[in-house]
């Protein structure tokens, strides 16, 4: 049967992309019932202000990390150390500002730290052949300690800082729209160009699909994998910059804690497979928005915090069940039987 001949409903139900979007829509509609003024958007202190803006705004760090994670997962890898990399980048900021560097240079230090961390992971996975989950676990457990040691370099008792430039990047705005959304848009666009308008994306997906075969086909699988972790380190560094500049405090113990799990979830909700071989950048961002919309709804719902994680788990389970081929086939067959 040709695709064009399928009934409209079935065509939509067969498409993976519809489920995360549907989940996002359902969450946002439910929010309207929970909180009457949910969709209201005003201008406060020179920037747009409202729950919908909050969801975009707060989703940026997770979405940034999820983009890098999507590339790594595309190589059939995983990066558990992203939260720790963000913590190291944040500690770099507090330290270099304390040391008196120009704040543009401070930003480069933080991103450089992210890239170095990514290269470290990439080296362990690509060149030493250590399994990704173990290789990145090393930095995951040690990274926050490294962040604390960086804080100790300058005493570290009061790791808060002031930086007009970095705080503008994180909490400022251009034409009423938060600066961090522009930052995210630029990073997304660059990454999309690199992945989709060069052969890199194809190579990554080929490597993730079958590393040996793609190697035989002339793809330097090791270099591709190394590059994937480097990209992930860079996006995690950016997330660290946004998060640390947000509270202008370096807090390696708790900044971006468990963000790796949200990032992996975002990739999977967006249709990525942990078996590798696929990268969906746009859908990954939708995945991150689903998670943040959920978090924001729980915060405004007035439910006791004990329920937060349970509700999140249930909604994620629901989305993933809808995405599963078997469950979807079940639903589609229901439509087929109806006249």
């Amino acid at each position: 049967m040709k695709l064009i001949e399928q009934p409209f409903v079935r065509r939509i139900l067969n498409g993976r992309a519809i489920w995360p979007l549907l989940a996002l829509a359902v969450i946002l509609i439910a929010d309207g019932f929970i909180s009457p003024g949910f969709y209201e958007i005003r201008i406060v202190e020179g920037r747009l202000f409202g729950n919908l803006i909050d969801i975009l705004y707060r989703a940026v760090p997770t979405a940034l990390i999820a983009l890098g994670m999507a590339v790594v997962i595309g190589t059939r890898g995983i990066d558990l150390s992203v939260g720790s990399i963000a913590a190291i980048a944040g500690a770099m900021i507090a330290w270099r500002i304390q040391a008196g560097d120009p704040h543009g240079v401070v930003l480069l230090y933080a991103l450089g730290a992210g890239i170095l961390c990514g290269m470290w992971n990439g080296m362990l996975v690509a060149f030493l052949g250590i399994q990704p989950i173990i290789a990145t676990l090393i930095l995951m457990v040690s990274g926050r300690g490294i962040g604390m040691l960086i804080n100790l370099i300058y005493g570290g008792t009061d790791p808060s800082f002031q930086s007009d430039f970095l705080q503008w990047l994180s909490t400022g705005s251009i034409l009423f729209i938060p600066t961090r959304l522009y930052v995210f848009a630029v990073i997304f666009l660059l990454l999309w160009l690199v992945i989709r308008r060069t052969a890199l994306g194809l190579f990554v997906e080929a490597t993730g699909g079958n590393a040996a075969a793609s190697n035989l086909a002339g793809v330097n699988a090791k270099l591709i994998i190394f590059a994937a972790y480097l990209i992930c380190g860079l996006t995690a560094g950016w997330a660290g910059v946004i998060l640390t500049a947000d509270t202008h405090t370096s807090d390696p113990v708790s900044v971006a804690l468990y963000i790796e799990l949200d990032a992996i979830l975002a990739v999977v909700i967006g249709g990525g497979s942990l078996a590798g071989g696929r990268i969906y950048l746009g859908m990954t961002v939708i995945g991150a928005l689903v998670i943040q919309a959920l978090t924001t709804s729980i915060l405004i719902s007035g439910l006791p915090p004990e329920y937060n994680l349970i509700i999140k788990a249930l909604v994620v389970l629901f989305v993933l069940v809808l995405q599963s081929d078997n469950a979807r086939r079940g639903i589609v067959s229901k439509f087929r039987r109806s006249p």
Partner: peptide, 22 residues
């Protein structure tokens, strides 16, 4: 209104942002 901010600055900021809107 009551929510968990996990004892962190970031957590307190997120929770207060939501309280301000709700």
């Amino acid at each position: 209104a009551t929510q968990s901010g996990d004892f962190t600055t970031e957590g307190g900021k997120k929770v207060m942002e939501a309280f301000i809107k709700s």
